[in-house]
Design a binder for these strands. Structure first.
Lengths: 185, 185
DNA sequence: GACGATACGGAGCGTGCGTTCCGGTTGTCA
DNA sequence: TGACAACCGGAACGCACGCTCCGTATCGTC
């Protein structure tokens, strides 16, 4: 990884940047040749650096999700967990909805990238935020981190169906809030 | 349509039945040859009755959505609109989630079948039910029929991501209920 | 500057799938 | 029952796309 030739390292970076842009715009459906052309390299070069199109896609998506995780970790010690949590929830949805790569990653295989192995950082950070919000009574206690990720997936679908309608996400947020009568325990 | 030969009419029905089953199970991804084989006909026969795979898919999906519309019309004069509406909402989601054809139809082109032209029956019937539920104060008034269909799409995504978790849909239902503080007008 | 190793590019292969085409078959009607 | 039209089956076509292969170019080193 470090003993690469200079041009190889350059090309690898160009491929990653092009893939990030192309996948974000058109999702997994973008042909690999398009990415290669956008990067200014041949298709063979892409395959020298990534074993498959799917691997390249995963690399791009996981990098983005890791950013979400980092943001969550930065909020882990905030003083008003309820507010912070709900704001974060909405923000993640808004950001992810602008990136078709992430939407496709979730639709594909029911969101494998969000679930198993990789993406664990995001999972634990999100669960932490949720638990703190629940501990101060801001969020209903009958859901866990897995439920939350499922809700994010759903909100992304809503956003894709009717973009920009902020108040639809608010319906879910209202449903998440702890209120008399909707707790199941 | 009526002056068809007997075998043609028979085959058309077989194709429709096979397509309904195959699309429901595997969605739009199922190869047309599979449908033809399942129907016990050749691929050419399928194309004699439907101009394209997409047209066959639309026919199947619209038929199913029309069933939903009919069910909604049957509830239009019920005496407890709030309860009826929310029950219907949940029931549609549960039924649709068992049918990958419908899920795919929504994902594809952001749910074109739900939106424009065809499927109008479902739209108006759903809007009617919603309005009645709102008029008795059972459902928040800052949403309309379009919002509602978007929410259905989202709930389907949730259901697909983590199947069978009934309480996630309940979160949305709780968000839909009219309660102090979440109205925007 | 020359030489070996490394990487590049893009033509080409294999595959899967939607769609078409046509020789044979079957239903319909006089 | 004969003959014509409608219909059928499935082989074949075209296309798109993931992936590989190899002759050529570039880099790092002595």
């Amino acid at each position: 990884m470090e003993k690469m030739r200079a041009d190889a390292r350059r090309n690898r970076a160009k491929v990653l940047a092009a893939a990030e842009e192309a996948f974000a715009a058109d999702g997994l459906a973008v042909p690999l040749d398009d990415i290669a052309r956008l990067a200014g390299v041949g298709a063979g070069t892409v395959y020298r650096h990534f074993p498959s199109k799917e691997a390249l896609f995963q690399a791009v998506v996981l990098e983005r999700i890791e950013q979400f995780a980092e943001e969550a970790r930065g909020l882990a010690t905030a003083e008003n967990p309820g507010e912070v949590f709900l704001d974060y929830f909405v923000r993640v949805i808004k950001q992810a909805s602008l990136n078709r790569a992430i939407c496709d990653a979730l639709a594909e295989t029911s969101g494998h990238a969000f679930k198993a192995g990789a993406g664990d950082d995001f999972r634990v950070a999100l669960a932490e935020l949720l638990q703190r919000a629940q501990s101060v009574g801001a969020v209903r206690t009958d859901i866990d981190g897995d439920d939350l990720r499922a809700l994010i997936v759903g909100c992304l679908a809503v956003e894709r169906y009717s973009p920009g309608s902020r108040h639809l996400v608010r319906i879910v947020v209202d449903g998440l809030r702890a209120s008399t009568g909707n707790q199941v325990t």
